[in-house]
Design a protein around this nucleic acid. Structure first.
Length: 480
RNA sequence: GGCGGCAUAGCCAAGUGGUAAGGCAAGGGACUGCAAAUCCCUGAAUCCCCGGUUCGAAUCCGGGUGCCGCCUCCA
């Protein structure tokens, strides 16, 4: 099956065909480590985590690079406020980043370069740009000359003329053109600085991604990703400086994820509605967060809300209930033998194919997930309505699990046992022993048909958020 | 002001030319001591509006309205 992706460069869905057959070089703009990550960062990371996992599931040999911007104005400002070295700030938030991503179950990229460890490569590139006449020096700053790059604007769909007409950009005295951007900045006293041919200074923001991506992936990348806010100016500038430097296409496919709003509003510090990942994972199971963030197509905007998250949790419950029901019959690797079993198995296989077809269509995770839910219903129905033997049900369950496998791998959900899922992530209101004692007491009441007593125990537990379900094999409990 | 995107049931969300997926919620039924869960059934006559193309449009084209993003740091 062939994969199609929406390429921001050209703004249409196109056949995905990497530079080298079977291999993919993928670079995604990481975070600037000056503060804790929020739900918007989570979406971006999760979207590309999904893409990375899916490419691997399709058999591509992927090299995934995601950087850390660990030198930048915002980091310096924070360090100054706290009166500490900028490295202390960047290291602290790199640590926090890993805590958050681990909590979300995000896979580690193959390479995670830091800007400060690639100053040499950046200087080399800036020097090359100056030599080729694409950059000029003013008082220790080096600027890229956008007029020297005729394709400037091809990613964001703007022309230099249009942008000048915009005129919201002030002409800095130093720059020849308001759109010229800094490749290297002379440092002010007291700021972090590195030796360079232009004196002490530090790299501009855009140059790091070009230098690091090319170092690890070569001069032409297959995929470059990031949030859609990065299209301009960041990615536009990366293209300009990279292609001016190498004379080759910088990246074949540009992929950008949509934004997250919160309860209908833009997330911003001034509105005070920034939702930090570390806070969210304490309230909601990471898999519910993943499902929520991945159940909207990656390019569409998504509005984060309590209600939406509760729904995602409910949807996860549904899938875990199916897995729980399967545990009762077991999973067999053999092919179904009954008429009905074969039919259901065939439909389940169709769901699996539809899952891959959906993902092949520009990573349509919402559609792919729908196929999983359809599969779950198919499975539930067979488990409950069919008069077939447990052995036959186990064989069909085996087919269903072949759909669950890719779901686990690509979306990073359904990775815990149903028991663990239903225990939730919050503190129990009472001890497990206590709960089980009450269940026993209720069983005894039920046995002697003392329904009033039995129901009052159930109501009592329910009031504390513990729900009882009477199954053929006994009563189980779960956290609401 | 310039550039780009989105607008589908109560809510979330697929669908980009041929009688509108899926999830949540709602109603009815089966099951249950009663529930819960599960299964079955029901549910969109403006697919934002107005024109146009077409045998046929949610889907293509033009215009409009609303919302969002970018143009300055931003996932």
């Amino acid at each position: 099956m062939s994969l199609k992706v929406y390429n921001t460069l050209g703004r249409k869905k196109v056949e995905f065909s990497p530079l080298r057959k079977g291999r993919v070089g993928m670079y995604v703009c990481g975070v600037t480590v000056y503060d804790y990550c929020h739900i918007g960062h989570a979406r971006s990371v999760l979207v590309f985590d999904m893409i990375y996992r899916y490419l691997k599931a399709k058999g591509y040999k992927v090299i995934y690079v995601r950087n850390f911007t660990d030198i930048d104005d915002k980091i310096i400002n924070r360090a100054n406020q706290e009166g500490v070295d900028f490295r202390e700030v960047s290291e602290r938030f790199i640590g926090a980043f890993y805590e958050d991503m681990d909590a979300l179950g995000v896979e580690r990229p193959d390479v995670e370069p830091k800007a400060t460890e690639h100053i040499k490569e950046m200087i080399e590139m800036v020097r090359g740009l100056v030599d080729r006449g694409h950059a000029y020096t003013v008082d220790g700053d080096v600027y890229f000359d956008v007029m020297s790059f005729s394709d400037y604007g091809k990613l964001s769909g703007r022309s230099l003329e249009e942008m000048k007409a915009g005129a919201r950009i002030e002409v800095g005295e130093k720059k020849r053109n308001p759109l010229d951007f800094a490749l290297w900045k002379a440092s002010k006293s007291g700021e972090p600085a590195w030796e360079s041919p232009w004196g002490l200074g530090r790299p501009g923001w855009h140059i790091e991604c070009s230098a690091m991506s090319m170092k690890y992936l070569g001069e032409t990348l297959d995929i470059h990703g990031g949030g859609l806010d990065l299209i301009f100016p960041h990615h536009e500038n990366e293209i300009a400086q990279s292609e001016a430097y190498t004379g080759k296409p910088f990246c074949l496919y540009w992929i950008h994820n949509g934004f997250v709003s919160v309860e209908g509003e833009k997330m911003s510090k001034s509105l005070g509605n920034v939702l930090l990942i570390r806070k969210m994972v304490k309230e909601y199971h990471p898999e519910a967060l993943r499902l929520f963030l991945l159940s909207t197509h990656y390019r569409s905007p998504i509005d984060f809300s309590r209600k939406g998250l509760e729904e995602a949790k409910g949807a996860m419950n549904r899938l875990y209930r199916t897995l729980e029901a399967i545990e009762e019959v077991g999973v067999s690797k053999e092919d179904p033998i009954s008429e009905e079993g074969k039919e259901v198995a065939a439909r389940l296989k169709e769901k699996r194919e539809a899952f891959f077809a959906a993902m092949d269509d520009d990573f349509n995770s919402a559609l792919a997930l729908a196929k999983v839910f359809e599969g779950a219903r198919e499975m539930n129905r067979f488990l409950k309505e069919s008069g077939e033997s447990y052995e036959e049900k186990a064989r069909v369950a085996g087919v269903f699990m072949e759909l669950v496998g890719p779901v686990k791998g690509v979306f990073g959900i359904l990775r815990v046992t149903p028991q663990n899922w239903f225990k939730g992530i919050k503190e129990l209101p009472m001890s497990v022993e206590e709960i089980e004692r009450l269940i026993q007491e209720r069983q005894e009441a039920r046995r002697v048909k003392d329904w009033a007593r039995a129901d009052s125990i159930r109501d009592e537990l329910k009031a504390k958020g513990i729900v009882l379900e009477d199954k053929p094999k006994g009563t189980i409990w779960r956290l609401a």
